[in-house]
Design a protein around this nucleic acid. Structure first.
Lengths: 153, 153
DNA sequence: TATTGTTATACTCTATAACTATA
DNA sequence: TATAGTTATAGAGTATAACAATA
């Protein structure tokens, strides 16, 4: 039991393989933009603001499934670095837009992330990308629903 | 920009879809065993010990990709709950085995997790499960390697 | 009364470093 | 000198509650 690998009873579980793959792929994506001084979430937010100029923090929260309380320091940091501008929409919300520097960062991040995605897609069987993305969307949709009849009743 | 959904430039990224799916599927799996008072990692560890009686903490760490420092409190908790026994192998390592109560917990957790897995697999196109698992294993293998030529040199 | 953004806080997961005792 | 387990600690990510200002 010392020098050999363990038998892993969850090795064939979707949940287990999904998490293991997610951890490694996130690490690779983070490395791909680390030279820009950006983490994945702020980088994604720059891309979203670039594609949706004038959007609000709460729009980003809804799209990314984040809590407002966790968006605040990220936006504050991006503004402090001079990459986004905030203009009042009304007294309680701000329209977010990229500065020129922010646009340069967003484009550099997008290029690095797209190159990484191409590398990942290239490792899949041809035609496998569309099937994979469809499966992931479906799993995201139904993932968080415990099976009926297992612990109910 | 207020009442409509945002354009999401990373919606088709493997990394983004993988993470979103992983979060939801992990939440569903956690719910499926929450009635047992078990979190996902301790439950997985019970299943691993059941399948590998006599294994050591560091064997579990290697298999699950965890740090030894983070395994310690989990094993201590499982022992405190009376679900595992620790017997000295030599002066520095312990052979881990399930108690009868631990076996009952492991079997209940396995049943709940398998039911959840069947629900997930049932939502995929027929024959899609094998392709999905193969893709996830491949992505796990190559995920953490930033693309050559993007920021190098 | 609900929404936007903020602050404070807490819990989990993960990571490193240093320590012991043993091999 | 390397390994097994532990302890302390620090950093992310995520969660809730409460608040001020506004709609």
């Amino acid at each position: 039991m010392n020098d050999t690998r363990l038998t892993n009873p969850v090795a064939g579980h979707i949940g287990y393989r999904l998490r293991r793959a997610s951890v490694q792929v996130m690490a690779g994506a983070a490395s791909a933009i680390a030279h820009l001084g950006l983490h994945l979430t702020p980088a994604t937010i720059l891309l979203l603001i670039e594609a949706n100029p004038g959007c609000r923090q709460s729009d980003l929260c809804q799209e990314l499934g984040m809590k407002r309380a966790n968006m605040t320091p990220i936006i504050a940091d991006l503004a402090a670095r001079g990459w986004i501008d905030r203009a009042a929409i009304d007294g309680r919300s701000m329209a977010l837009r990229l500065t020129d520097g922010g646009r340069a960062m967003a484009q550099a991040a997008a290029a690095a992330l797209e190159a990484n995605e191409a590398r990942l897609a290239g490792a899949l069987p041809s035609g496998g990308l569309a099937d994979l993305l469809a499966a992931l969307v479906q799993l995201e949709r139904i993932g968080d629903q415990p099976a009926a009849g297992t612990q109910a009743a």
